[in-house]
Amino acid sequence: MGWFGNRKEPPAAASRQDRTRCWEARDAYFACLDASGVVVAGSEGSRCAGQNKAYQENCARSWIDYFNKRRVLAEQQKPILAQAAMQAEEAKRRSS
């Protein structure tokens, strides 16, 4: 199961290359989810199977859980951040 599961204890931490590979796989998978309009990873059915496989192979389980949770959180924060940005813009416009 990728670089993480095969190693003896303690498993070697991800190297820079490992990290980059994982991030790229994650970005590809999340782009696919975005295209399918899915926020919560795993609820997309079989649509992004290829990307998901690469993601699972290149990232540790704990990282996958973390990235998936953060994706949901970021999605929830989007309207709030947009609103904050709009208010900031308005305040700027009023003061000038």
């Binding site: 931490a13 820079r16 990290r19 540790a60 704990s62 990282w63 990235f67």
Partner: peptide
């Protein structure tokens, strides 16, 4: 920590 996904690096 070395197993840090993104913020530490």
């Amino acid at each position: 920590f070395t197993n840090c996904p993104d913020i530490c690096p």
